[in-house]
Deep mutational scan, measured.
Amino acid sequence: MWEAGIQHIELEKGSKGLGFSILDYQDPIDPASTVIIIRSLVPGGIAEKDGRLLPGDRLMFVNDVNLENSSLEEAVEALKGAPSGTVRIGVAKPLP
């Protein structure tokens, strides 16, 4: 389960991407759907250096692409398709 509020994070995407990987996970509230979760951070990558994204965070959007009900493929496309420079990411943090 995740917090209702969405944290807005801006990262600078370079030639090596944003520095994290994702996975799809069965939604605990709606078993028929999936949620997109941050799986891991690349050591020394943009996301790890920034410090705000953590494994277990739920990915909600990338720039103007809503990922609340997306497939893993759609989420990967949104991340890979984001141009270099500032990328806006929304995440919901896990409940304590």
Score class of each variant (00 low, 15 high):
residue 93 K to I: 02
residue 87 V to F: 03
residue 66 N to A: 08
residue 8 H to K: 12
residue 34 T to F: 08
residue 63 N to I: 00
residue 25 Y to Q: 15
residue 80 K to V: 09
residue 19 G to T: 01
residue 43 P to F: 06
residue 54 L to Y: 13
residue 96 P to C: 07
residue 93 K to N: 04
residue 44 G to L: 06
residue 45 G to H: 04
residue 56 G to P: 01
residue 39 R to P: 03
residue 2 W to E: 13
residue 12 E to F: 07
residue 20 F to S: 00
residue 71 S to N: 10
residue 4 A to M: 10
residue 27 D to N: 11
residue 48 E to T: 04
residue 42 V to M: 06
residue 56 G to S: 04
residue 26 Q to R: 11
residue 27 D to E: 13
residue 84 S to D: 10
residue 22 I to E: 03
residue 36 I to E: 01
residue 96 P to W: 04
residue 42 V to D: 13
residue 51 G to K: 07
residue 17 G to W: 02
residue 51 G to Q: 07
residue 6 I to R: 06
residue 41 L to T: 07
residue 25 Y to A: 13
residue 45 G to C: 03
residue 1 M to V: 03
residue 7 Q to C: 12
residue 74 E to V: 10
residue 26 Q to Y: 07
residue 19 G to Y: 00
residue 64 D to T: 08
residue 15 S to T: 12
residue 26 Q to C: 07
residue 60 M to Q: 04
residue 66 N to D: 09
residue 18 L to T: 03
residue 53 L to K: 01
residue 31 P to L: 05
residue 20 F to D: 00
residue 9 I to A: 03
residue 28 P to V: 09
residue 6 I to Y: 12
residue 17 G to D: 11
residue 53 L to N: 00
residue 53 L to Q: 01
residue 69 N to C: 14
residue 57 D to G: 06
residue 44 G to W: 03
residue 39 R to F: 03
residue 69 N to Y: 07
residue 83 P to G: 09
residue 25 Y to D: 15
residue 76 V to I: 10
residue 45 G to T: 03
residue 65 V to I: 08
residue 26 Q to G: 10
residue 80 K to P: 00
residue 48 E to W: 05
residue 81 G to W: 08
residue 7 Q to K: 12
residue 27 D to W: 04
residue 10 E to M: 08
residue 34 T to K: 14
residue 82 A to C: 08
residue 11 L to T: 02
residue 81 G to H: 13
residue 84 S to P: 12
residue 12 E to T: 13
residue 67 L to G: 02
residue 49 K to P: 01
residue 3 E to M: 09
residue 92 A to P: 01
residue 74 E to W: 06
residue 39 R to E: 07
residue 79 L to G: 01
residue 45 G to P: 00
residue 69 N to L: 10
residue 40 S to V: 03
residue 23 L to T: 15
residue 39 R to L: 04
residue 61 F to W: 15
residue 55 P to W: 02
residue 17 G to P: 11
residue 12 E to V: 15
residue 20 F to G: 00
residue 13 K to Q: 14
residue 86 T to K: 12
residue 53 L to T: 04
residue 44 G to T: 05
residue 44 G to Q: 09
residue 87 V to L: 09
residue 95 L to C: 05
residue 89 I to D: 00
residue 24 D to F: 03
residue 37 I to C: 14
residue 71 S to Y: 04
residue 6 I to W: 12
residue 83 P to W: 04
residue 77 E to L: 10
residue 7 Q to E: 15
residue 6 I to H: 06
residue 3 E to R: 04
residue 50 D to R: 02
residue 78 A to S: 10
residue 22 I to M: 08
residue 44 G to K: 08
residue 28 P to R: 11
residue 50 D to C: 09
residue 3 E to C: 04
residue 82 A to R: 03
residue 5 G to K: 05
residue 14 G to S: 14
residue 33 S to E: 08
residue 69 N to Q: 11
residue 31 P to H: 08
residue 62 V to Y: 03
residue 32 A to D: 15
residue 29 I to C: 11
residue 27 D to F: 06
residue 38 I to S: 00
residue 22 I to F: 05
residue 34 T to C: 09
residue 26 Q to F: 10
residue 79 L to N: 00
residue 61 F to M: 14
residue 28 P to W: 05
residue 39 R to A: 04
residue 95 L to E: 15
residue 44 G to V: 01
residue 29 I to M: 09
residue 76 V to S: 12
residue 20 F to H: 00
residue 35 V to I: 15
residue 76 V to H: 13
residue 70 S to K: 14
residue 28 P to Q: 11
residue 26 Q to T: 14
residue 81 G to P: 02
residue 42 V to F: 08
residue 39 R to C: 05
residue 75 A to V: 04
residue 9 I to E: 02
residue 51 G to H: 06
residue 41 L to Q: 01
residue 15 S to I: 08
residue 89 I to M: 09
residue 60 M to Y: 04
residue 29 I to Q: 12
residue 28 P to C: 08
residue 71 S to T: 12
residue 69 N to M: 07
residue 82 A to M: 12
residue 26 Q to K: 12
residue 20 F to Y: 00
residue 55 P to N: 07
residue 21 S to P: 01
residue 53 L to A: 10
residue 75 A to L: 01
residue 85 G to M: 03
residue 15 S to P: 11
residue 70 S to L: 07
residue 53 L to E: 00
residue 33 S to L: 09
residue 76 V to R: 15
residue 19 G to M: 03
residue 71 S to P: 11
residue 69 N to P: 02
residue 37 I to W: 03
residue 73 E to W: 06
residue 81 G to M: 14
residue 31 P to D: 10
residue 64 D to E: 05
residue 25 Y to W: 15
residue 21 S to T: 07
residue 21 S to G: 10
residue 80 K to A: 11
residue 14 G to H: 14
residue 22 I to T: 03
residue 87 V to T: 13
residue 85 G to Y: 02
residue 45 G to F: 02
residue 69 N to A: 13
residue 57 D to Q: 15
residue 23 L to F: 10
residue 77 E to M: 07
residue 39 R to Q: 13
residue 48 E to I: 04
residue 51 G to A: 12
residue 31 P to C: 07
residue 11 L to H: 00
residue 73 E to T: 12
residue 75 A to N: 01
residue 1 M to K: 15
residue 28 P to H: 13
residue 88 R to I: 07
residue 89 I to F: 15
residue 47 A to F: 01
residue 54 L to T: 12
residue 34 T to S: 13
residue 36 I to M: 06
residue 96 P to Q: 15
residue 93 K to Y: 03
residue 75 A to S: 10
residue 68 E to N: 07
residue 73 E to S: 11
residue 80 K to T: 11
residue 1 M to N: 15
residue 38 I to G: 01
residue 25 Y to V: 08
residue 94 P to N: 15
residue 59 L to M: 04
residue 16 K to P: 07
residue 89 I to S: 00
residue 57 D to V: 06
residue 4 A to L: 10
residue 23 L to E: 10
residue 59 L to F: 02
residue 51 G to R: 04
residue 64 D to N: 14
residue 43 P to D: 09
residue 24 D to H: 04
residue 43 P to M: 08
residue 75 A to H: 01
residue 55 P to T: 11
residue 73 E to H: 13
residue 49 K to D: 05
residue 24 D to M: 03
residue 62 V to M: 05
residue 79 L to I: 10
residue 46 I to K: 12
residue 8 H to P: 11
residue 2 W to N: 15
residue 82 A to V: 10
residue 33 S to K: 10
residue 39 R to I: 04
residue 65 V to N: 10
residue 46 I to M: 12
residue 64 D to A: 14
residue 67 L to K: 00
residue 88 R to C: 13
residue 38 I to K: 00
residue 64 D to R: 08
residue 64 D to Y: 05
residue 63 N to Y: 00
residue 22 I to R: 00
residue 33 S to V: 14
residue 10 E to I: 08
residue 33 S to D: 13
residue 81 G to N: 14
residue 47 A to E: 02
residue 27 D to I: 08
residue 5 G to R: 08
residue 65 V to G: 03
residue 22 I to K: 01
residue 85 G to F: 02
residue 90 G to N: 02
residue 76 V to A: 13
residue 9 I to F: 10
residue 10 E to C: 08
residue 28 P to S: 12
residue 21 S to V: 06
residue 91 V to A: 06
residue 18 L to W: 05
residue 13 K to A: 12
residue 51 G to W: 00
residue 76 V to E: 05
residue 25 Y to H: 14
residue 83 P to S: 12
residue 71 S to F: 07
residue 72 L to Q: 07
residue 90 G to Y: 02
residue 77 E to T: 09
residue 86 T to R: 15
residue 85 G to T: 04
residue 38 I to F: 02
residue 42 V to R: 11
residue 23 L to Y: 13
residue 96 P to A: 11
residue 82 A to P: 04
residue 21 S to F: 11
residue 66 N to W: 09
residue 79 L to P: 00
residue 23 L to K: 15
residue 45 G to R: 02
residue 66 N to F: 05
residue 58 R to Y: 01
residue 47 A to S: 05
residue 61 F to P: 00
residue 17 G to I: 02
residue 76 V to Y: 13
residue 17 G to E: 06
residue 66 N to T: 12
residue 62 V to N: 01
residue 76 V to M: 13
residue 32 A to C: 14
residue 26 Q to P: 10
residue 61 F to L: 12
residue 21 S to N: 15
residue 63 N to L: 00
residue 60 M to A: 07
residue 84 S to V: 09
residue 20 F to W: 01
residue 15 S to E: 09
residue 41 L to C: 07
residue 95 L to A: 10
residue 37 I to M: 14
residue 29 I to N: 14
residue 86 T to F: 11
residue 56 G to A: 03
residue 48 E to R: 03
residue 96 P to S: 09
residue 18 L to V: 09
residue 78 A to R: 05
residue 50 D to T: 09
residue 62 V to W: 02
residue 87 V to I: 12
residue 56 G to Q: 04
residue 78 A to D: 02
residue 70 S to F: 13
residue 67 L to F: 08
residue 49 K to W: 03
residue 34 T to Q: 15
residue 35 V to Y: 14
residue 16 K to E: 05
residue 15 S to D: 06
residue 34 T to R: 14
residue 6 I to M: 09
residue 56 G to H: 06
residue 31 P to K: 09
residue 76 V to Q: 15
residue 93 K to V: 03
residue 54 L to I: 12
residue 3 E to T: 09
residue 70 S to R: 12
residue 41 L to H: 02
residue 56 G to W: 05
residue 80 K to Q: 07
residue 46 I to P: 11
residue 29 I to F: 06
residue 20 F to K: 00
residue 63 N to V: 01
residue 7 Q to Y: 10
residue 75 A to Y: 01
